[in-house]
Design a protein around this nucleic acid. Structure first.
Lengths: 304, 304
DNA sequence: CATCCCGATAAGCTGAAGTTATGACAAACC
DNA sequence: GGTTTGTCATAACTTCAGCTTATCGGGATG
């Protein structure tokens, strides 16, 4: 049935070009009978002759001419395919689907995207910003290539690499600026504003205070760190935010930022991907870029 | 090297579609290991993975997706090629380059082209009208597919098929209408107008009168039968024309047309093509159409 | 922990595609 | 006009790519 082969196409093209079996065979690095047989077979499976064998020259038939045009197109497409593969072999492929948790995304991404596209201009970055459980699902389903989340996730099918650690800092109303930094136990008694259910940062903050998320508490759930800080500025309570958010979130609010004494509360941020991902190598490379980006950011924040 | 094969493309496409080695193999009518190996080989020769083998499903990589789009395009092109071959296998191919001698062309072609395109609408007919020697050269050089000429041509590399015979008739000024038809010998003594050197019809007419073309004679060479008849109408001399030309050429001239007594002078018109032409079968078929066309024309002429 | 699913690997077989040698035929050349 | 030459087709043989069946191994599932 459909037993046309690219090999036949390549031989055909050579013969069409040279108009001579011997020379076409030489150009194709095979013997003349081998070429004759392949051409014959091609003609037979098409059911129509492609060449007219004259005494002293080989000519394309009218059909052969049209055939040649299309065959050349196909061969060209195949070559393009090879080029494409060669191009994307070493460099990153065109599309990178990156998931990021909301407590990282707004602070890390602007710089990160800049750095990534600087390294590889034709990298097409798709960002998905949502909470860790959703990221994990989408990662498993192949709708994401990788994600930046708080470690550990402890999923056997996923590879984790640590990127950096970040401390949590206390955000209080400006009026509390001079007061001593409360201990975790004291925090429990203050009005602590937290992110709504689902955010890992909520759990991390609660765990620092030795609180259970399920405990019936009178706390106000915000949907973003930005909201929380604004509420603190309004004197409604206090909150914790990751160090990386300080520069952005406290710029437009009357709040005081205080570090906790050692051991500071902190979390580890890492990158994860499927064990089976063929992008592993490139993702490791990307992890390096993320690490660098975060480092530069933290230095810029440190003086604050 | 460039060892991609259409087979690999077809397997790849099946796997991309099914996302499952076993089912894709079944769909491709091969065993699962055979498919695994071909895919593996394809990935290796591309140097980049196409699929991510997950625990419970096989997914295209980002590169694989782009690859799939192009592969499908290529496979579609190949299928089109097969369709094209199938379509042109039985019917005539798109282009027919037909040579015709000038003493036939204007009388036969209008009806012939109509008949040919009626049979095969998408037949692209190219006409070349010139004298036999030029037609032969172009035929040998592959610039014509076939030619309609007077037989015999006696070229070993060419196939001839007879189409029809046509008689020559005498054209005299209207004033000579009643006079007896002169014998060939008498013709020699009259002022005989002939086509210029190179036309076979000139030689055929001369041979009827037992004259040598090279003889120094006081005859006037016309470049077309139309010219000759007009000159006869002006009383300059007499001429011979093929029967087929009568209807067209004597319509607008004051001339008398007379048949010779048996044995009438006549010539055989036939079709020729290269022995090696792969169009032989179709050309034979076309010869049939020409034969029919000429028959209808001669019947229409007979009553004149 | 046992089982199942599914793809990879192993080992062997077959036929397609290549090789060299030769045939056939037409053109070109003494 | 026979001989040589150029050229493609055919024949006989060889090799390796591609297929088969059998089996392994690893991750998901109950």
């Amino acid at each position: 049935m459909t037993n046309l082969t690219l090999k036949q196409f390549r031989y055909f093209e050579a013969l069409a070009r040279h108009g001579h079996f011997g020379r076409a065979a030489e150009a194709s690095a095979i013997s003349q009978p081998a070429l004759s047989m392949q051409i014959k077979e091609l003609e037979e499976s098409l059911g129509t002759p492609l060449f007219e064998r004259g005494a002293r020259q080989v000519r394309l038939t009218a059909f052969g001419e049209g055939f040649a045009i299309r065959v050349r197109e196909i061969l060209r497409s195949v070559e393009e395919l090879e080029d494409l593969a060669r191009a994307s072999r070493d460099r990153l492929t065109g599309r990178l689907r990156l998931g990021v948790i909301p407590t990282i995304a707004p602070y890390l991404l602007p710089a990160l995207i800049g750095n990534l596209t600087r390294i590889n201009a034709d990298l097409d970055i798709h960002i998905r910003e949502t909470v860790t459980p959703k990221l994990l699902t989408e990662l498993h389903e192949g709708r994401l290539d990788t994600a930046i989340v708080a470690l550990p996730v402890s999923e056997p099918a996923l590879t984790e690499v640590a990127l950096f650690s970040e401390s949590f800092v206390l955000v209080r109303p400006d009026s509390d600026a001079g007061k001593p930094v409360p201990s975790p136990e004291r925090l429990r008694e203050m009005r602590l504003l937290l992110l709504e259910e689902g955010h890992c940062f909520r759990d991390q903050a609660l765990s620092f205070c030795n609180l259970q998320s399920t405990l019936p508490r009178e706390l106000l759930d915000g949907s973003s760190l930005s909201t929380l800080v604004q509420m603190v500025g309004a004197g409604i309570g206090v909150t914790l935010i990751p160090e990386m958010a300080v520069a952005v979130e406290t710029r437009s609010a009357d709040v005081a930022v205080s570090h906790f004494p050692e051991p500071q509360p902190q979390r580890t941020i890492g990158m994860i991907w499927r064990n089976s991902s063929p992008l592993a190598q490139q993702l490791t490379q990307i992890a390096g870029v993320v690490r660098q980006t975060a480092e530069v950011l933290s230095k810029r924040i440190a003086p604050v």
